[in-house]
Simulated assay, not measured.
Amino acid sequence: MSTPLVLLPGDEVPSDHLPPANNNPLKLGPGLKLLSEPTPASEKPRHVLTATQAGILSTDAKRNTVSLLSFPNRRYIPTVNDLVIAQIHHSSADYFHCMVTPHTAHALLGQLSFEGANKKTRPMLKQGELVYARVLSVGLGAGAEVEITCVNPATGKADGGLGPLVGGMVFDITTGMAARLIRASSSSPDDDDAVDGLVVLSELGRKLESIGGFEIAVGRNGKVWVDCSNAGDSAVKATIALGRCLQGTDEHNLNPADQKKLVSKVLREFKLA
């Protein structure tokens, strides 16, 4: 495709824009939903892939995935299965009430929605503390309640680092950059190809490996948590440098070559390289 395909909510994805059919099931990313279209009883149901938000269609034939890239400054709208970084606002008998964005009502996080949690071992989270969670359900209509969880409902395990985020710092990024970072961080370590033209994470990982590397959690709600506690005396400097690189890449929409230049420049300024 030479021209990007922009879709609006409810638009059908043209079949010629999908990856070539193979034996593996097509994986759907954020912003897309498979619907069954009404047909006469004598015919087989017709399934159509439609957009649930505005964005640019992105396909990856190698991974057999298709997703919708949200526009960078789009306000975050909670969607089931999204990973988010939420802040505890207050607690009640059964729930923690969490801020996911300033524009939406508080999300509900069950006090037992943590790996191995019971009434005695559940985390005692206080106002202002952070959790990495997955959107479990969203209601219908304006002001509907959103429920999040810190475990995989199928396994009861905290897959992917879900749970309280201790230490580190949180940086604001656009929702579009958050989506790109999630795809990049989930790509294979042996894959040398840049995901969505994003190499800043791999470049930082390579250059900070000698001082202990870093941990990162990315929320689709435009938040990224970074922890470089293994860097010892350089932990704070490394964390701030890493956040600056991510925000700079986002703000200026840097290409891969300029991302590498930014990483080298920032690490030199902080005397980390």
Results as ranks from 00 to 15, higher is better:
residue 117 A to N: 10
residue 201 L to I: 10
residue 219 G to M: 11
residue 53 Q to A: 11
residue 233 D to I: 15
residue 102 P to V: 15
residue 196 D to V: 02
residue 246 L to R: 12
residue 40 P to C: 11
residue 90 H to P: 10
residue 252 H to A: 09
residue 100 V to Y: 03
residue 230 N to W: 15
residue 212 G to S: 04
residue 251 E to H: 13
residue 209 E to F: 09
residue 148 I to R: 01
residue 21 A to K: 08
residue 261 K to I: 15
residue 29 G to Q: 05
residue 237 K to M: 07
residue 166 V to P: 02
residue 269 E to S: 05
residue 175 T to C: 14
residue 222 G to F: 14
residue 198 L to V: 05
residue 77 I to R: 10
residue 107 A to D: 00
residue 262 L to I: 06
residue 175 T to A: 08
residue 22 N to H: 02
residue 103 H to E: 11
residue 238 A to C: 00
residue 210 S to V: 08
residue 8 L to C: 07
residue 145 E to I: 08
residue 50 T to I: 08
residue 94 D to S: 14
residue 45 P to N: 08
residue 264 S to R: 14
residue 177 M to Y: 02
residue 84 V to S: 06
residue 191 D to T: 03
residue 91 S to A: 15
residue 176 G to N: 01
residue 224 V to I: 06
residue 65 T to P: 01
residue 187 S to A: 06
residue 20 P to F: 03
residue 270 F to I: 02
residue 182 I to V: 13
residue 117 A to I: 03
residue 210 S to A: 12
residue 64 N to E: 03
residue 233 D to M: 15
residue 267 L to G: 11
residue 147 E to K: 11
residue 43 E to K: 11
residue 86 A to V: 15
residue 67 S to V: 02
residue 229 S to M: 05
residue 107 A to Q: 01
residue 178 A to M: 05
residue 201 L to M: 15
residue 115 E to C: 00
residue 167 G to N: 09
residue 267 L to C: 05
residue 263 V to P: 01
residue 11 D to P: 00
residue 273 A to N: 14
residue 41 A to L: 06
residue 24 N to T: 09
residue 44 K to A: 07
residue 229 S to L: 04
residue 11 D to M: 00
residue 246 L to F: 11
residue 36 S to L: 13
residue 113 S to K: 03
residue 83 L to E: 15
residue 189 P to E: 11
residue 199 V to T: 15
residue 172 D to M: 09
residue 136 L to T: 00
residue 50 T to F: 09
residue 93 A to L: 12
residue 48 V to Q: 05
residue 42 S to M: 05
residue 146 V to M: 10
residue 241 A to P: 14
residue 94 D to G: 13
residue 136 L to Q: 09
residue 96 F to L: 10
residue 191 D to R: 11
residue 135 V to G: 03
residue 75 R to S: 12
residue 257 A to L: 13
residue 128 G to H: 06
residue 59 T to L: 00
residue 95 Y to G: 07
residue 41 A to T: 11
residue 3 T to Y: 06
